[in-house]
Write a protein that binds this DNA or RNA. Structure first.
Ligand SMILES: [Mn+2]
Ligand SMILES: [Mn+2]
Ligand SMILES: [Zn+2]
Ligand SMILES: [Zn+2]
Lengths: 143, 143
DNA sequence: CTTGAAATTGATAAACCGTATCAAAAAGAA
DNA sequence: TTCTTTTTGATACGGTTTATCAATTTCAAG
């Protein structure tokens, strides 16, 4: 029995609304994905090669993109690759990214979130989601 | 006579310190770059094709990367391409994006910017650039 | 439990972006 | 001008992601 009942439900709801099918591969990839904070398609390909050596890389890409459409993942470009962030893992958070070594620090700041709401309201918008990434050098890379 | 005396000076200083040469191409690309807030190598390639049809794409990439090293530009991954931001350009802003109609509203919020700096400092980071995008529905699309 | 239309998969070709290569050209100090 | 070093432009290349397509799987209908 899967531990990720809630997210599996979100996926199934999305599949139902779009005439998509629930497959062994999608279940396998979701289970693996939800154990991560963020991962690349290539990393997941190698991780899952043990469980299912015939799982194709294209399927990994397709499925991770599907998760984005279902709201379970968020794609983020860093360096030459795409990171797929697990939205449900730790609740919402934003990222500090070191341009020197690639280190990623997660943070949450209620004041910023509140100001974002203010900006949106002032412009007549209702926020559904947002993305805040701060790029710079970590203490180690600055020296 | 160029309007970008200050930035041309910064470039020449960098060139001098690194045994690099001042070329017609570097001057041409800097002039075009400073007129933009941000641009991709490909966009610049097509823009400059009129002025110099023989200017190579590799030269654009090399030169924009050189500008980054000289502190005149900052590379930022956006979608699948690299955006080169003009750091000397005033009027930094972030974006509100309507997921209904695609409308984009630009905004600037000093309080958010200040809080970003605080978050970075608290984590030992020095910010080079950042990206804040708020996705939601505009007043028209909400109804 | 079948059946069959529609969706999915896996292998791999292709597209795409940015970098490396290298011979010819240009820069710039002497 | 001369001569060494750097730069350029054309293009090959490498890594990442998407497109293609025949074979397989899903799942709703019978
Ligand atoms: Mn946030
Ligand atoms: Mn900003
Ligand atoms: Zn670092
Ligand atoms: Zn709208």
């Amino acid at each position: 029995m899967s531990k990720h009942v809630k997210e599996m439900g979100i996926l199934k709801e999305h599949l139902g609304k779009h005439q998509l099918k629930f497959t062994r591969q999608r279940e396998l990839i979701l289970d693996a994905f939800l154990k991560q904070e963020h991962i690349t398609a290539e990393e997941m390909y190698h991780q899952l090669a043990r469980k299912d050596p015939h799982l194709g890389l294209a399927t990994i890409y397709r499925t991770l993109n599907l998760f984005c459409e279902a709201g379970l993942a968020q794609a983020r470009h860093f360096g030459t690759q795409t990171q797929y962030d697990n939205v449900s893992h730790k609740g919402h958070h934003d990222h500090l990214i070191c341009t020197g070594c690639g280190k990623i620090v997660e943070f949450e700041n209620c004041d910023i979130e509140r100001l974002q709401e203010e900006v949106a309201t002032r412009n007549g918008f209702t926020i559904q989601t947002h993305r805040l990434e701060l790029y710079g050098l970590c203490s180690r890379c600055r020296h």
